[in-house]
Simulated scan of single mutants.
Amino acid sequence: MRYSLVELAPVAPGTSKSAALERGLAAAGEAEQLGYDRIWFAEHHHSTGYASADPVPMVAAAVARTSRIRIGSGAVLLNHHSAFAVAERFMMLQAMAPGRVDLGLGRSSAGGLIDAALRRDRDSRPVDDFSAQVQEVLGYFHRAFPAGHGLATVDLTTSVDGVPDVWILGSSVASAHLAGQLGIGYVYGAHINPAATWAALERYRESFVATPFGSGVPRPILTLHVAAADDDEQAHRLTWPARALRAGGRDRPIPTVEQATAELSGRDKALTSAVRGDVIPPQIAGTPGSLREQLEPLIRATGVAEIIVQDMLTDFALRSRSREIIAKVLGSIDAPPR
Rank of each mutant, 00 (worst) to 15 (best):
S4K: 07
E7W: 02
A9H: 11
T15F: 03
K17E: 05
S18I: 01
S18L: 06
A19N: 08
A20S: 00
R23Q: 13
R23H: 07
G24R: 04
A26W: 01
A27W: 04
A28H: 11
G29L: 12
A31P: 06
L34I: 09
I39Y: 13
A42C: 07
A42V: 05
A42H: 06
H44Q: 05
T48P: 08
P57Y: 03
M58V: 06
V59I: 14
V59A: 15
A62K: 14
A64L: 15
T66F: 01
G74V: 03
L78A: 01
S82H: 09
F84Q: 11
E88S: 15
R89T: 12
M91A: 14
M91C: 13
Q94N: 08
A97L: 11
A97C: 06
P98G: 13
V101P: 05
L103S: 05
L105E: 07
L113W: 12
L113S: 11
D115S: 13
A117L: 14
S124D: 09
S131D: 11
Q133V: 03
L138N: 07
F141Y: 13
A144F: 05
A144W: 02
F145P: 11
G148W: 06
L156Y: 02
V163P: 11
P164C: 02
D165G: 11
W167R: 11
L169C: 04
G170M: 01
S171F: 03
A176F: 06
L178V: 14
A179V: 08
A179P: 10
Q181Y: 07
G183F: 05
I184N: 04
G189W: 13
A190K: 12
H191S: 11
H191P: 10
I192Y: 00
P194H: 06
A195R: 15
W198L: 01
R203H: 09
Y204M: 15
A210H: 10
T211Y: 14
F213S: 07
S215Q: 09
V226T: 10
A227V: 10
A228G: 12
D231T: 05
Q234E: 14
H236C: 07
H236F: 10
H236I: 12
A244K: 03
A244V: 02
L245G: 03
I254S: 00
T256D: 02
Q259N: 12
A262C: 08
A262D: 09
G266A: 12
D268M: 12
L271Y: 12
S273M: 02
S273E: 06
V279T: 10
V279P: 07
I280F: 12
P282I: 03
Q283H: 13
Q283A: 13
T287I: 04
E293D: 02
E296L: 08
A301V: 03
A301I: 04
T302M: 02
A305H: 08
I307F: 10
L313A: 00
L313H: 00
R319S: 09
E324W: 08
I325L: 14
A327I: 11
V329Y: 06
S332K: 01
S332Y: 04
S332R: 01
S332E: 01
I333G: 15
